[in-house]
Simulated assay, not measured.
Amino acid sequence: MSERHKVKIAKRQTVSGVTTERLRELILSGRLGAGEPLRQDELSAFLSVSRTPLREAIITLEAEGFVVNHPHRGAVVYKPTVDELLEIYEIRILLEARAAHEAAERVTPEVLRAVEGIVEEMNNAVSASKLIELNESFRHTFYSASGKRMLVEMIRNLTLRAEPYLRLLVGGPRRPFTKLEMAPLLDAIRAGDGKRAATITRKHLKKTVSGLLPILKG
């Protein structure tokens, strides 16, 4: 393979990646609503990209669960459902409680300082997007202390799948990630108390589900 060909492939992958990120943000921000068709001509013009990276972006987002391809309607934005919410969080509760338990018992001073800094940023966040971004960063940083790479990766994938649901909650009048709720978990982490960290993590995730169910059913 020639160097010129390698450069072309790398450039295409870069355009495709950027297009994926921009399209994902349009969905997560609600600018592309649940069930809305992804009209490729309009999106190509709006994003100033050709059809090829746009198609690749749609394929990626379909694999992530943000897009569904219907035989007659084509690609549409996925619509959150109660059944999927319950399934995602059932698995998250199991995995994250395990990760929190092990991470709290193995946490290093460096990781502790990092999560404390993230929580401080969370308390000062002024937008749903920033709050969700910081929440994911907190979880990934904390759970990484468990030393369980595959466990952390599975949780990260589920967290990504849960983003559309979280935006329904965080974007409304309730803000689930307040200092009041993070403080007990930080105390457990500082104490190296894995059992307490796991219990708090389960409680937090169950509370999120309780807040989302009325929204989805309403």
Rank of each mutant, 00 (worst) to 15 (best):
S2E: 11
S2Q: 11
K6W: 11
A10S: 12
K11F: 13
K11V: 14
V18P: 00
T19W: 02
E21V: 12
L23W: 04
R24A: 15
L28D: 03
L28H: 03
G30S: 08
R31K: 12
E36K: 05
P37Q: 08
Q40I: 10
F46A: 14
F46L: 14
S48G: 11
V49I: 05
A57G: 08
I58L: 04
E62L: 01
E62F: 02
E62A: 12
E64P: 04
F66C: 07
F66D: 06
N69L: 13
P71K: 07
P71F: 09
H72A: 14
A75V: 05
V77P: 00
Y78R: 15
K79L: 11
P80W: 06
P80E: 09
D83Q: 15
L86D: 07
E87D: 13
Y89V: 02
Y89K: 02
E90K: 12
I91S: 11
I91L: 14
R92E: 01
R92Y: 00
I93S: 05
L95F: 10
A100M: 10
H101M: 13
E102Q: 13
E105I: 10
E105G: 12
E110W: 06
E110C: 05
V111Y: 07
L112V: 09
L112N: 07
V115R: 00
V115W: 01
V119H: 02
E121T: 00
V126I: 06
S129I: 09
S129D: 14
K130Q: 15
L131H: 05
E133G: 15
L134N: 04
F138V: 04
R139V: 11
S146A: 11
S146W: 03
G147E: 10
L151I: 08
E153A: 15
R156C: 08
R156I: 04
N157T: 13
L160K: 08
R161T: 10
R161E: 14
A162L: 04
L168V: 09
L169I: 07
P173I: 09
R174D: 10
R174A: 13
P176M: 01
F177G: 00
F177K: 01
K179P: 02
E181G: 05
M182S: 08
A188C: 07
I189V: 15
A191G: 06
A191N: 12
R196L: 15
I200A: 03
I200P: 01
I200F: 04
T201A: 03
T201D: 01
L205A: 00
V209H: 00
S210D: 14
G211T: 00
L213S: 08
P214G: 11
L216P: 02
